[in-house]
């Protein structure tokens, strides 16, 4: 793995305060600019304000779950310039969300491995050309 990929800004979407704080801490320590959203509507608000980068998306959230939030991102034409990685306790996304296969860049299961997480952040940066 070369080091040419830069660290992109990361938007963490998770209803769990502890997860948001932990991810914020890990990612800022690695040099990322981090935005935090406790739910889908907050995620969309941040995207409309111009965020571009990697979105770390929880699946099981009250209100809109992660899949519904991705649908809203796509329907709202807010995907451009962003890649989405699921970060979830669900080891298997199941068969019900195949229609989103083309929109999900990567998938990481909690408890997450920090090395793997930063590899995804680095590859997302390379793939976004940032």
């Amino acid at each position: 793995m070369n080091d040419s990929g830069k660290l992109v800004p990361v938007l963490v979407v998770d209803d769990d305060d502890d997860i948001r704080k932990t991810l914020g801490c890990v990612l800022r320590s690695a040099g990322c600019q981090v935005e935090l959203a406790p739910d889908g509507p907050a995620c969309l608000r941040i995207l409309r304000e111009g965020f571009h980068g990697l979105i770390l998306m929880d699946i099981m959230m009250p209100g809109w779950d992660g899949w519904a939030t991705i649908h809203a991102i796509v329907d709202g034409d807010l995907l451009q310039g962003n890649l989405i990685c699921m970060l979830t306790a669900l080891a298997d996304p199941g068969p019900d969300n195949e229609d989103l296969a083309g929109y999900v860049f990567d998938y990481l299961v909690k408890p997450f491995d920090g090395v793997q997480l930063l590899e995804i952040v680095r590859l997302a940066g390379e793939s976004l050309g940032s």
Binding site: N2, E126, G129
Partner: peptide
């Protein structure tokens, strides 16, 4: 590889690096 179109040019560069 299933990917959104907008990352195609940079994804090609990523592949070339690896």
């Amino acid at each position: 590889q299933h990917l959104p179109r907008f990352i195609e040019p940079s994804f090609l560069q990523t592949l070339r690096r690896h």
